[in-house]
Design a protein around this nucleic acid. Structure first.
Lengths: 188, 188
DNA sequence: TTGACATGGTCCGATTCATACCATACTAAA
DNA sequence: TTTAGTATGGTATGAATCGGACCATGTCAA
C-alpha cells in the first residue's frame, strides 16, 4: 500500500494504518490494555485489516513515545499496561479520519492466485480447490451470521456494523464464485 | 497470512506466495526477465496479490540460488537477466498447485477502517469519504472494462480470466456499498 | 547533440509478519 | 495443599514485505 492518508503528528512520527487502528480502537473503547485490544479485534477489525497480535504490544509503545497515548502501568496483580488517548492522540485520530484515502481495497487471495495459474492443474484438482474454498467460505459466513444475530436488523444501518456488512457481501460473492467454478470448471 | 500452502523445495528453501507467483508467471510466459514480469503483472495478478516491483528482482535470485530457476545474463545491449524454470522449479510449481490453501481472501481497506471508526466523524465527512471511494471504484471498473473488452465474452469461461472476474465482482460490490452509504449515511 | 522519455534495474530503511516462547494467575481435582 | 491444566497477558526475533527514491542505458525527435 502506498502511504495514502498517512498523517504525521507534530512530533514527526509516521502514522500508518496500524497506528490509526490502535488509536481508533482505544478511542472507541476507552482506556485499554493491549490484551483488551487483542480480544476486541478478533471478530471485527481483523476482517478488513488483518495483522498479528504482537503488533498490539509494540505499536502502543511507539505511540506513547510520540505523545499520542499515555500509559499507566498497573502494579496490582498481573503486570499490564493501560493506555489511553491523549489530547494529541485524539487530534491525530480525528485528523486521520478527515483524510479520505486515495486507494481502494486490496485483496490477497492465494486460491485465486492458484486459479490464475490453473493451466498447470488438472480439472480434478481445480474442482478440489473450488470445493475446499467454498467450504471455507460457508464456515466464515456461519460465523458472520452469529455476529449478525447479535445486532439483529441494525446491521448496515449502524456505522460500525456497516463495515462488517461489506465483509459479508464479499464473502458471499466469493462463495458463489467458487461454487460456480466447482459446478462448471472453466477450460484452461 | 499464516503459512498455508507454503511448499518447501528439496533444498529447504521456503516458498511463500510471492515465490510461487514468480514461478507461475514464468511458467505461463516462458523465459522472462524481471522487467517482463513487471509489465505482465500490472493489470492482472497484482489485482489479487499486490506487491512492489522491487521484489521481482530479488525473488528470482533467491529462486535461482535454490535451483528452481536458471538464469542467463544477456551481454548484448542493456544488461538484463533472463530466467527460466528448471525441472525442479516446474515440479515445485505443480506441487504448490496441488495444495489447496486453508485460508480465504484477505482484504485490507483503509476506507472501511475509517468507516469503522466513523463515530468520530461528522456525517458530512462520512459522505465525502463515501463519494471519494465510489469515484475510485468507478475508475477501477472502467479499467477492468477495458481489459474485459480484450477478452470479449471469454471472461469467466477461461481459467485465467476467471480470476480477474472475481476482482470485478468485488469492485462492483464495493461501489454499490459506498454509493449506498453516500445516499443514506448510517447513524453513528 | 542534446535532452526528454521510456526502459530496465538496484538499494535500503522501515514496517509488518508469523510464530514460538515466557510468565502469571485462577481453579479444581488429587 | 500440591499440582496440573487452562486462560490470560506479554515478549522476542528473524524473515518477509513495503514503498519509493534513485541510477543507468537506450531511442528518437528536434
Amino acid at each position: 500500500m502506498s502511504n495514502h492518508a498517512a498523517v504525521s503528528a507534530q512530533s514527526d512520527i509516521r502514522l500508518g494504518p496500524v497506528s490509526c487502528l490502535v488509536l481508533g480502537l482505544i478511542g472507541l473503547r476507552g482506556p485499554s490494555t493491549p490484551y483488551d485490544l487483542k480480544k476486541a479485534i478478533g471478530r471485527s477489525v481483523s476482517y478488513f485489516w488483518p495483522f498479528p497480535h504482537s503488533q498490539l504490544y509494540g505499536e502502543p509503545e511507539r505511540l506513547e513515545a510520540a505523545g499520542l497515548l499515555s500509559c499507566q502501568t498497573e502494579s496490582s496483580g498481573r503486570r499490564r499496561k493501560l493506555y489511553k488517548l491523549t489530547k494529541k492522540g485524539d487530534a491525530a485520530l480525528k485528523k486521520w479520519l478527515k483524510t479520505p484515502p486515495d486507494t481502494v481495497f486490496e485483496m490477497r487471495d492465494i486460491a485465486v492466485l492458484q486459479l490464475f495459474f490453473s493451466e498447470f492443474m488438472s480439472e480434478e484438482d481445480l474442482v478440489r480447490l473450488a470445493l475446499s474454498q467454498a467450504k471455507l467460505y460457508r464456515e466464515r459466513l456461519a460465523t458472520y451470521a452469529e455476529i449478525e444475530k447479535t445486532y439483529a436488523g441494525r446491521m448496515g444501518r449502524n456505522r460500525r456494523m456497516a463495515s462488517l456488512y461489506l465483509g459479508i457481501r464479499m464473502a458471499k460473492a466469493c462463495l458463489e464464485f467458487w461454487e460456480d467454478i466447482a459446478a462448471r470448471p472453466p477450460s484452461p
